[in-house]
Design a protein around this nucleic acid. Structure first.
Length: 194
DNA sequence: TGAATGATCACG
DNA sequence: GTGATCATTCAT
């Protein structure tokens, strides 16, 4: 599985290299997993779109923990989003996991999402958090652990396979190309031209 | 295109 | 204390 050193690097590098890796969550006897196909980088300095832009607060505290820490937050009063903390402890940066392709535990995901179409189970940050059952209680969880970790991509991911675009749903620093995705992948939160 | 839905944070 | 804002989703 991916070690902490993997996450303790420049955030945009981590965001890019997370594409194709497999998120594994063991809850009791059940294992859920999926292949990451879309991420966004939230940089440590000068990134006005980042929750950590104005420093540490109760909500974003996990972003200042060590690399490989899970940062879970509630958005729009309804949904949850999950991030993985990057770089050195205390810098305040992370990668948002925006979409993945379900692998193991599809039935559970279908129940949680109240729908059967696999393409719509986890093609968005709020959707994948719901499908995997991530809660605010999972904030600060260790992504380098038995019950929660990432496995290397089964297939090689070449530069040509990767698309880059501005991040979605933000109003500040909206032009920065910090969203990374597997080009033409059917499980993206939205389909891009390039 | 807009409603749902509520915590968070900056400001004073 | 107050109010604008929000790294979204879904139905209309």
């Amino acid at each position: 599985m991916l070690q902490r050193e993997f996450f303790a690097r420049a955030t945009s590098i981590v965001a890019r290299e997370l594409l194709g890796t497999i998120l594994v969550l063991q809850r009791g006897t059940e294992r859920l997993s999926g292949r990451i196909v879309e991420t966004e980088a939230y940089l440590p300095e000068g990134d006005a779109a980042s929750h950590a832009f104005r420093g540490k607060t109760p909500r974003n505290a996990a972003m200042f923990a060590q690399a490989g820490t899970l940062y879970v937050y509630r958005i729009y009063g309804i949904h949850r989003c999950i991030n993985i903390v990057t770089e050195e402890e205390g810098k305040g940066c992370a990668v948002l996991i925006r979409a993945l392709e379900p692998m193991q535990g599809v039935e559970t995901m279908q129940q949680r999402r109240s729908l059967t179409d696999i393409k719509h189970l986890s093609n968005g940050p709020g959707k994948l958090a719901q499908a995997f059952g991530f809660e605010l209680a999972d904030n600060f969880a260790d992504v380098c652990s038995e019950s929660l970790h990432l496995l290397p991509s089964v297939f090689p991911v070449y530069a040509d396979d990767i698309g880059i675009s501005p991040r979605i749903g933000i109003t500040k620093a909206a032009e920065l190309p910090l969203r990374f995705f597997l080009r033409s992948h059917p499980y993206l939160s939205r389909q891009d031209k390039n």
